[in-house]
């Protein structure tokens, strides 16, 4: 008997160990027993390590997950950026159309107030040199433009046509030194001659020294010479120079037209019967009124 046990001892121990859980399951104790001191010690050792490991695994997994997720996000972002750019471009072109529409509406309203032959043109280039102030328009001889025609916008006088080609024409702006326009101080009807002075200023000459001209006075075209219709705005007085001696005074004028931003203009024939309604220049747009 002892010999048999001795011979099969390994199998017996294995069977007993296998049966131990079965005994525990069969014991009937459902609630977990309180931890013994060695269990507690073990838990205190393993728990922090578990915690660190779990954190590390979670973070790694999170990173991997985020990486793959971000790949999608990046792609999504690229698509959104592209879409956004496209929309921004569309918005910019719509805004441009809206601005052009606004400008043209003002120009048309102003144009209606002018009698006679009118041609609307676009500015396509400026002078080759910064010292001179001419503009090139996209309308020429073919469209009925001829030398000496007046060029205006809803902001005021631009200049006159000096060169005409079949499809293009050049405008000598008011800012150019060789430009002269008969002007009038709107408040007290003082006459003078307005000419280009610097790259952004005009000068009114031949004004009597005794005439009362003040800063802020509006200067309009006097209509003398019939090139420009009477009453079109030229600019505002910014300074008055009176010398100790002499019979005239010189007036510096800030032009009403922003020549650097000029895009569309109206070319008009110098006709004696052209009249301009000044109300058209100040009357706000109907749509603007609604707003």
């Amino acid at each position: 008997m002892w010999n048999i046990i001795k011979e099969y001892r390994h199998y017996i121990v294995a069977a007993l160990i296998i049966m131990m859980p079965l005994v525990a399951l069969n014991s009937g104790t459902k609630s977990p027993a309180p931890l013994m001191w060695f269990n507690k010690a073990a838990v205190r050792l393993t728990a922090p390590a578990q915690s660190v490991l779990t954190w590390a695994i979670n973070k790694t997994w999170e990173s991997v997950e985020n990486y793959f997720f971000l790949l999608n996000v990046r792609q999504y972002n690229v698509e959104l950026l592209s879409q956004n750019r496209k929309l921004m471009n569309e918005l910019a072109s719509f805004r441009e159309v809206a601005l052009e529409n606004k400008r043209l509406r003002k120009l048309v309203r102003f144009s209606r107030s002018l009698a006679g032959h009118k041609i609307t043109a676009k500015v396509i280039a400026q002078d080759l040199l910064p010292e001179f102030r001419t503009l090139r328009l996209n309308k020429g001889d073919k469209d009925g433009v001829s030398r000496g025609m007046a060029v205006v916008t809803h902001e005021g006088i631009v200049g006159r046509i000096i060169r005409v080609d079949k499809n293009y024409s050049d405008v000598l702006t008011l800012l150019d030194s060789s430009s002269n326009v008969a002007g009038l101080v709107q408040r007290n009807r003082t006459h003078g001659v307005v000419e280009g002075y610097t790259d952004n200023l005009l000068r009114m000459k031949h004004v009597r020294r005794t005439d009362d001209v003040r800063n802020g006075d509006d200067i309009i075209s006097s209509g003398i010479g019939t090139l420009f219709p009477k009453g079109i705005v030229i600019g505002k007085v910014i300074s008055v120079h009176k010398q100790k001696h002499g019979i005239t005074q010189t007036i510096e004028i800030y032009p009403s037209v922003d020549f650097s931003r000029l895009e569309e203009v109206i070319i008009i024939k110098p006709e004696a019967n052209i009249k301009i309604s000044t109300a058209a220049l100040t009357e706000p747009d109907m749509n603007e009124k609604k707003k």
Binding site: A125, D127, L128, L129, E131, F132, R133, T134, R136, I162, R163, D170, L172, D176, S178
Partner: peptide, 13 residues
Amino acid sequence: FAEIHSGAPAGML
């Protein structure tokens, strides 16, 4: 060519 692209007096440029 430069002169026809400018308002400079003839011959100046």
